[in-house]
Structure formats: structure tokens, C-alpha cells
Design a binder for these strands. Structure first.
Length: 894
DNA sequence: GCGGACTGCTTACCT
DNA sequence: ACAGGTAAGCAGTCCGCG
């Protein structure tokens, strides 16, 4: 039997020739670190361990066991706890033990251990089934290697030995793609992110008095729910109510001396020197390590106070000192450390002859994890679209340290005029330190919001903090569904079986290429409307999933008597006998957010830190809820079920249509509506409460007044309006003037109009406002015509390249033309990069802003753009762009 | 050879 | 790798035009 190592379960890129020294097992590596007397090891949890947070889980190949990392916040140390229950990796199949024994390659597989008979409930067949549990010695034997895995052997080999009742097409293997440590977490019903104690070497969830009190309180609010629903509320509340610790952490950044400064050095080769490494820690550690090099001057820049600088005469010693830091912190923060900093450090260390076992980093294909603590790569976290949109409301645009830093903590990178090779020591140190300082601040602002957000998401999804910070919302949702399957002894179905059992969609989408019909958008009534109340359904789709009992089990269920319970506008029916897991889990989470966390986060009587903690929880839950319908329509989702997504949208259309009809009956004028909202013109209090009551009674859903506009401006365009709230703040939706790709010049004019509109209080105020707005437009127009602009940058359009520049074959949009011109000038852009260009008179009609000059600007194009931007508002104000600018012509002649 | 009507591609937005 | 719906600008195509 080959020795199994921790490294075995993470696929590692090939080491270069010199570095082929055999990887050292995990515990030995720790021992080596101890030998070097760098820090207090080993971190094995003692018989009795103080309350500690479950922050990570993995598989320790050396021990052949699941390994839990516990963070003890008083000593701020990580402790390891190994499984001692004998849990082993497995997958399930519908073949009998008798059949399986005939498969030679399975029985003789080195990783195979034994068979067990298991009884499960098959959620697709809706009945109890007997399955065989194939237990393996290590997780990779089940799956994960390219060839020869147990999960592949079974369907491939079985037909050769078949003489049984099961035909080859009917052979099924289940749960073979679940990561081992996840499987362990589910089976042992452990909760990542929660507080555990070790007593007699056992992991025990710590009971918290205050949490219990709050859970009781919450259950009181939900006392009218069914017992089944209450059980789910209780489960979520317990996970969410537990407190969060302070996270001892350090942010790290490295600089490498590359021969071609514009190109990022390849970490796999690690052929260039590491010249500077900086640390910024939550314990106040602010250090910079510099490599001594010939001919580099000290420099006389001022480093921030209390930053200490240490010089190293060899790169090897520098890296070893970095490793000492990595062995000592429970949490390490980087920005792109997975793909660069930690990867580079590892390979550079090996190149310099540092032994593998002294490297505190485990390099994976897509990530770099730490042997001791938890590595959070903020690039991955902020790249996550759910995080970007819902947690940080799209405040940053590029996922770069500079842009995210500017948007969230108002810190930017230091701009360099020179290459690294030409910098003085202090210039380099200052630059490098700023980067780790920004990364640190990104985990520190708003009372460690980012760390806590990751912790809460780890609890919801039952995932290690590392995974939750790297993976998307669909994984988070999948995992809490998987957890629930295991808890209830349900077989976790394969995606293709769900699809085969429940089929595809039946409605036709409006957009070509989409799978089914989506939401309704009501045509707006153009004009200016005073006193507009906006009503909406808080989390409409999750409410629908709850009220209509939607889930892959319940849609198109097998009971003949449920067939009449049709989803309006479709031929799908929904089960009336048994609640679906999705319905219960998502429904209870929604209710908890709306009825408890949203309110708690606004409760003035609570201390500010508790309120902000509740705000983080409700924000995390919001992220989950926002995606909870979409995942069922995404074929990449493991529980993909198109009819569920389609039914949800169909019920949404039905719901809003009913409200529209009801509003008509109540003589309320509906100005506009989109998906889950209604804009009502000057409704009375009675009308609003009648509408809300009716919805509550008839549809079992809540309809609230979300906001009241002093006035709102609509054109005939959908998803385009402007509303001024009572306090004078202005909501702009969809208008070109708010899009971030338009020239600043036009945006500034639009913002001036916005400010002017904010001052309008009554209909008569509009007369003067219209004159002022005309003036703003005229002014802007004249500036263009006279070619008076501050800088060419003000005229630049800024567009993100959705693809690699060579990848556009069907058409060549303007921004791609600009990118290609830039490439001819030696600047290469890639997918995801932002390109800035101006419109010019001559042929391709675009030019990257860097290359353009004032005289070649095509002014008329900009006037046209100004026109269309303002038309969206002018229509409603009864103003005409041409008249506004035409007037100036007359004036000029007079 | 050129302009208008049309479709399709692309990006940024809304819910 | 959560969904579909809308706006806008431009690229490319087809067709008519003595």
C-alpha cells in the first residue's frame, strides 16, 4: 500500500526537476517547524480545549483522517483535531454486494476497504431503497484521480460480469463527487464557523446562554408556523445567533524583480528574486523585509510611522523569515495569493534549496492553503459577483487592490514612476507595505466585516472558511442542501437523474436563447408624477418557493392527486403532501431575515457593535436569498431543476398580475412595475393597507411600502426612471446618465441636472428647474462646440472587455477596435480589463485615450450622445433637446 | 455605390 | 458558472435604386 500524504488529495502541479525531493508528511512538517523553535507546536488539540471556532476542515493523508482546524480566540492559536470515530470515505450504488464482488478491479483496488448495506430514501422515486455503501481507505480511491477510480470502474466493468436484474443503463453511483471533508462534516453533523470544545478528545458544540435566549425569542415570533417549519427556523437561528471572534491575522504582499516589468513573473518557474515582503497584522505588526542588493540606495522617503524595516543579505533567509510568520498566524490575508504571492514563495523557496517540509504552504491547482492557519485570498472573495453586487452594492468596478481599496477603505496603491529595479529601498518598502496595508484594511473596516461575512457564510453553507471565500453562491446553496439530505438520510440525487425525472421547461422566453419566460415589466406612464409610493414583495422569489412548496422533489411529483395543483401559466403541478427541502430551507431563511435580522440591524436600542453584527448576518442571508431561485435554472448547479425555476418565475408573473388587477379595482393608478414592485400614484393610506391586506390574505405573501418618492420621472422606457425621495436624495435607475461607461464630461452635466431636480419640491418649482436644466444642457453643448474640455479623459468612454481581444469574431465593437490599436502600440489588454477610448473623426472613428489628441475629437458624436442621454429625462419634462440648443443659435445671432 | 431597414452582437443596467 | 428582461450603440447584411 502506498503511503498516503496530506498532499495526495490536492492535485499538485509538477515540481521542477531540482525540486522533486519527496514531499514530507504533514505531521512531520509540523515537527520540523517545531525543531526550528520558531513557534509553539504542535497545534494538536489537547484533551481539553477551550472554546474554539471551527474554521477549517481538510483530509490529512498521513493520518488517513479528517482534520478539523479550530481557532481558539483567547490564545489566538489554531488547534488541530483529528477524527477519532473511524469515519471513512464512501460512495453509494444500487448494485448489490453480490454483484459488486464480481468486479475484480473493484475488489482488488488498493483503496477499496469494504461494503456495507445502507437504507436510504430516494427523493426522486419517493420511496425507501437499499443501496450498497462502498467504503474506501482514502478519498482519492473513490474519485479524483484521472483514471482507475472506484466511481468509474463500476459502470464500466459491470456489464462484463452482468447476470443480474440490473441492466447497465440502470447502474447508479451516488455521492461520489462530494469532497471527503464535506462528507465528514455532514455525516458528523458538524457546523463550520461554530464554537466547539474538546472534552475527552471529543468535539462538542458549545452551548451559549445568550444564543439560547435569542433562539427562544425567535421561536416565539414564529410560533404560528408548523412544527416542521419551526424546526428549520430553529436550525438557522442557532447557526446565525452564535457570536463571532476577533480574528488574529496578517496581510502579506511580495515584490519580485522581473526582467520585463510589465509582465507578471511565472510563479511555477520562480526564476526572479523576491526583493521585498511586507506584513500588516491585526496585532499591530507592520514589517517590511528587504533583500540587500548591490547598488541600491537607501532613499529618503518616509515610511509610515511604526513600520519596521529588516534587511536580509540572502534571499533564502528572507524567505525563511517569511515562513516563520506564516507558521505563526491563524489567518493570513493576501490579494491574489493563490495565484501569485504564496505560489511564488513556495517555488522560489524550493529553487533556493529550502526543504519542502519547511514550506508552510500547500500548493494546489487553483489555490494555496496553509499547513497551519487559514489563507483568505481577497481577490477571489471580491471577484465573487454576489459579493460584489449584493454585499458591496457594486461600489468597486475592477477587482484590483487599487479599485477595491479606493471604494471600500479609501486607500490606493502607490503610483510608481520607475521600475522596481530603479527604486530605493525605502521607495520599494513603502510601495510594498501599502499593498499589504490595503489588504489588511479590507478585512478590518466596519468591525472586521469581511472576516465575519466569511464566517457567517461558512455557517450557512457548512463549508471551511477557505472554501467559502473562494467559491460562488451556488456552491454555498448546494452545500446546505446536501447537508440537509444527509441529515434526513436522503440519497443525494445525480443531476442527470433530476433532469430525466422532472424534464425541461415549457414556456418561451422573450430573449432568444433563454430557457424559459421570466418576469413582467409594466409599461411606465411617461411624465412627472408627484407623491409616488413604491410597494414591493420582500424577497418575492424565496417567498414563492416557500408558499408554493417548490423544490425538485415536489414539482411534478408522483402522486396522481397532486396533478390538479397546477402552477398558473404552466402545465407543472406541485406536491400537496410533502414539503420540499428547498421550500423549507429557503422559506425559513427568508422569514428569519425579514422578521428578525433586518429589524435587529436597525434597532436603535441595541449597542452599535451588535447592530452591525446583525447587519452582517442579514447581508449574508440576503446574498444567499438573492441567488436561491436562479440556481435552479443554472445547468451548472448540482440540483438543477428547470421546472422549479420556471414555476417560480411563472408564479411571480401571476402574483404581480393579480396585484395589478386588484389595484385597478381599488382605483389606484399604477405608474410602473418591475418583477416584484408597483409604483402607485398618490395612493391613500386606506388604499395601501387594503392592497397589503388582500395580498396577505389571498396570496399569503407580504407587500410593503418600500419607499415614497416626492416625485418620480418616467419616460416611455422600461427600467429607466428617476425618483426624488422626501429627504431630497435622488434614485436614478437605468438612465444612461448613471452608466459608468459614459464620458465623465456627460456624466458631470447629468449630475448637475440631478442636483437641480433634487431641489424641486412642488409642481410649480418645475418651471424654474426646467429653465435651469436647459441652461445646463446649453452650457455643456457650447463647451463641446467650442472644444472646451478639461482633459481628454473627460471624453473617454470606459468599457470592459468581456472577452480576450482576439476572441471577437462575429463583429468588432468599438472598444475592441480601440484595444487592438493599443495592442499595436505594445499595450496588451485581456478579458476583464477596462479600455478607455475617445471618438475621433478619422476612419476607425475610435482611438485609445492615451493616443488621441484634442484636435481629432469628433464633437458631433458627443453632441449626439449628450442628446440621447438627456432625452431620457427631457421627454418627461416636456423639453426638447434641439430647441434647447437651437435657442442658443438664435441668441448668438441677436 | 450608397442609404435605409433590418438583425445580431455587445455592454451595462434592473429586478 | 444564480436567472430573465430592457436600453442603447454599433457592425454587418440585404435590398432597392432606372
Amino acid at each position: 500500500m502506498p503511503q498516503r500524504h496530506l498532499e495526495d488529495f490536492r492535485v499538485e502541479p509538477k515540481l521542477s526537476k531540482e525540486n522533486e525531493a519527496k514531499a514530507l508528511p504533514f505531521t512531520e512538517a509540523v515537527a520540523v517547524a517545531k525543531e526550528r523553535k520558531t513557534h509553539t507546536f504542535p497545534p494538536i488539540a489537547p484533551e481539553k480545549l477551550q472554546p474554539s471556532y471551527f474554521v477549517s476542515a481538510t483530509y490529512d493523508g498521513r493520518a488517513g483522517k479528517a482534520l478539523i482546524k479550530l481557532y481558539e480566540p483567547v490564545s489566538s492559536k489554531i488547534f488541530f483535531w483529528h477524527d477519532n470515530t473511524g469515519h471513512m470515505p464512501y460512495c453509494l450504488t444500487n448494485l448489490s454486494q453480490y454483484d459488486l464482488e464480481k468486479i475484480d478491479r473493484l475488489i482488488k483496488h488498493p483503496g477499496f476497504d469494504h461494503f456495507e448495506l445502507a437504507e436510504k430514501f430516494d427523493p426522486l422515486l419517493n420511496k425507501d431503497v437499499k443501496v450498497t455503501k462502498i467504503v474506501a481507505k482514502d478519498p482519492l480511491a473513490i474519485g479524483g484521480r484521472p483514471t482507475g477510480c472506484i466511481r468509474d470502474i463500476i459502470p464500466k466493468e459491470f456489464p462484463n460480469v452482468s447476470d443480474t436484474l440490473v441492466s447497465p443503463e440502470q447502474i447508479k453511483v451516488w455521492e461520489s463527487r462530494i469532497k471527503y471533508y464535506q462528507s465528514y462534516i455532514y455525516d458528523r453533523m458538524l457546523s463550520p464557523g461554530m464554537i466547539y470544545e474538546v472534552r475527552d478528545s471529543k468535539l462538542i458544540l458549545k452551548s451559549m446562554e445568550e444564543t439560547e435566549r435569542n433562539v427562544k425569542c425567535i421561536k416565539e415570533i414564529f410560533k404560528d408556523c408548523t412544527d416542521e417549519e419551526l424546526q428549520f427556523v430553529d436550525q438557522w437561528a442557532r447557526l446565525l445567533e452564535y457570536p463571532a471572534p476577533k480574528f488574529l491575522r496578517v496581510a502579506l504582499d511580495i515584490e519580485v524583480l522581473a526582467p520585463i516589468p510589465t509582465r507578471m513573473p511565472d510563479p511555477r518557474e520562480a526564476s526572479c528574486q523576491i526583493i521585498c515582503v511586507s506584513f500588516c497584522g491585526s496585532d499591530g505588526q507592520r514589517r517590511v523585509f528587504l533583500l540587500k542588493r548591490d547598488g541600491v540606495r537607501e532613499g529618503n522617503e518616509h515610511l509610515p510611522a511604526d513600520v519596521s524595516v529588516e534587511y536580509f543579505d540572502s534571499e533564502k533567509k528572507l524567505i525563511q523569515a517569511v515562513f516563520d510568520v506564516l507558521w505563526s498566524y491563524p489567518f493570513v490575508i493576501t490579494f491574489n495569493g493563490d495565484d501569485f504571492d504564496l505560489r511564488y514563495l513556495t517555488y522560489r523557496a524550493l529553487n533556493l534549496g529550502i526543504r519542502r517540509n519547511e514550506v508552510p504552504i500547500e500548493v494546489g491547482r487553483r489555490n494555496c492553503l496553509l499547513r497551519y492557519g487559514v489563507h483568505i485570498d481577497l481577490y477571489k472573495f471580491f471577484f465573487n459577483r454576489s459579493i460584489q453586487f449584493y454585499a458591496f452594492s457594486n461600489r468597486y468596478r475592477d477587482v484590483t487592490l487599487d479599485d477595491v481599496g479606493k471604494a471600500l477603505v479609501r486607500m490606493e496603491k502607490i503610483r510608481l514612476e520607475k521600475n522596481f529595479g530603479e527604486l530605493t529601498y525605502t521607495e520599494l518598502a513603502k510601495y510594498c507595505f501599502r499593498d499589504s496595508e490595503i489588504a489588511f484594511m479590507l478585512t478590518d473596516f466596519d468591525d472586521e466585516l469581511v472576516m465575519k461575512l466569511i464566517l457567517v457564510l461558512a455557517r450557512i453553507s457548512s463549508m471551511p472558511m477557505e472554501d467559502v471565500s473562494r467559491q460562488g453562491v451556488s456552491r454555498w446553496i448546494r452545500n446546505f442542501l446536501h447537508r440537509e439530505h444527509r441529515r434526513r438520510n436522503l440519497l443525494i440525487p445525480n443531476a442527470e437523474d433530476i433532469l430525466a425525472a422532472k424534464g425541461k421547461t415549457t414556456t418561451t422566453a422573450i430573449i432568444k436563447g433563454k430557457k424559459y419566460k421570466g418576469a413582467i415589466v409594466v409599461d411606465p406612464i411617461p411624465g412627472v408624477h408627484f407623491n409616488v409610493s413604491v410597494m414591493d414583495f420582500p424577497s418575492l422569489y424565496p417567498s414563492i418557493i416557500k408558499v408554493w412548496n417548490l423544490g425538485y422533489q415536489s414539482i411534478l411529483c408522483q402522486h396522481p392527486e397532486c396533478r390538479t395543483n397546477l402552477v398558473p401559466g404552466t402545465s407543472h403541478w406541485v406536491c400537496t403532501k410533502k414539503r420540499a427541502l428547498e421550500s423549507l430551507l429557503i422559506g425559513s431563511l427568508r422569514d428569519l431575515r425579514v422578521e428578525w435580522y433586518k429589524q435587529k440591524s436597525k434597532e436603535k436600542a441595541l449597542p452599535a457593535d451588535l447592530r452591525s453584527w446583525y447587519n452582517i448576518i442579514q447581508g449574508a442571508v440576503k446574498v444567499i436569498l438573492n441567488a436561491s431561485y436562479g440556481v435552479f435554472g443554472a445547468d451548472s448547479f448540482d440540483l438543477y431543476c428547470p421546472p422549479v425555476a420556471e414555476a417560480t418565475a411563472a408564479i411571480g408573473r401571476h402574483t404581480i398580475t393579480q396585484i395589478l388587477n386588484r389595484a385597478k379595482q381599488l382605483a389606484i393608478q399604477v405608474l410602473y412595475g418591475d418583477t416584484d414592485s408597483l409604483f402607485l400614484k398618490n395612493p391613500s393610506k386606506e388604499q395601501i393597507s387594503q392592497l397589503a391586506q388582500w395580498t396577505e390574505q389571498e396570496l399569503k405573501m407580504s407587500l410593503d411600502v418600500d419607499k415614497v418618492y416626492r416625485y418620480a420621472v418616467f419616460s416611455q422606457r422600461k427600467k429607466n426612471y428617476l425618483g426624488v425621495l422626501e429627504d431630497g436624495s435622488v434614485d436614478v435607475k437605468g438612465l444612461t446618465g448613471k452608466k459608468r461607461n459614459i464620458p465623465l464630461f456627460i456624466k458631470k452635466a447629468f449630475d448637475r441636472m440631478k442636483e437641480r431636480l433634487a431641489k424641486v419640491k412642488t409642481p410649480p418649482d418645475f418651471e424654474q428647474a426646467k429653465k435651469d436644466i436647459s441652461e445646463i444642457i446649453r452650457d455643456c453643448y457650447m463647451c463641446l462646440k467650442r472644444r472646451e474640455w478639461e482633459s481628454l479623459n473627460d471624453l473617454a468612454f470606459n468599457v470592459v472587455l468581456g472577452e480576450e481581444p482576439d476572441h471577437y469574431t462575429k463583429t468588432t465593437p468599438q472598444h475592441v477596435k480601440a484595444a487592438r490599436i493599443l495592442k499595436e502600440n505594445g499595450i496588451e489588454l485581456r478579458a476583464g480589463d477596462l479600455i478607455s477610448f475617445v471618438k475621433v473623426v478619422r476612419d476607425p472613428h475610435v482611438k485609445p485615450v492615451e493616443l488621441a489628441t484634442n484636435s481629432e475629437v469628433d464633437v458631433d458624436k458627443y453632441v449626439g450622445y449628450l442628446h440621447s442621454t438627456f432625452d431620457q429625462v427631457l421627454d418627461a419634462l416636456d423639453l426638447d433637446f434641439d430647441e434647447i440648443i437651437g435657442l442658443t443659435k438664435l441668441e448668438r445671432f441677436m
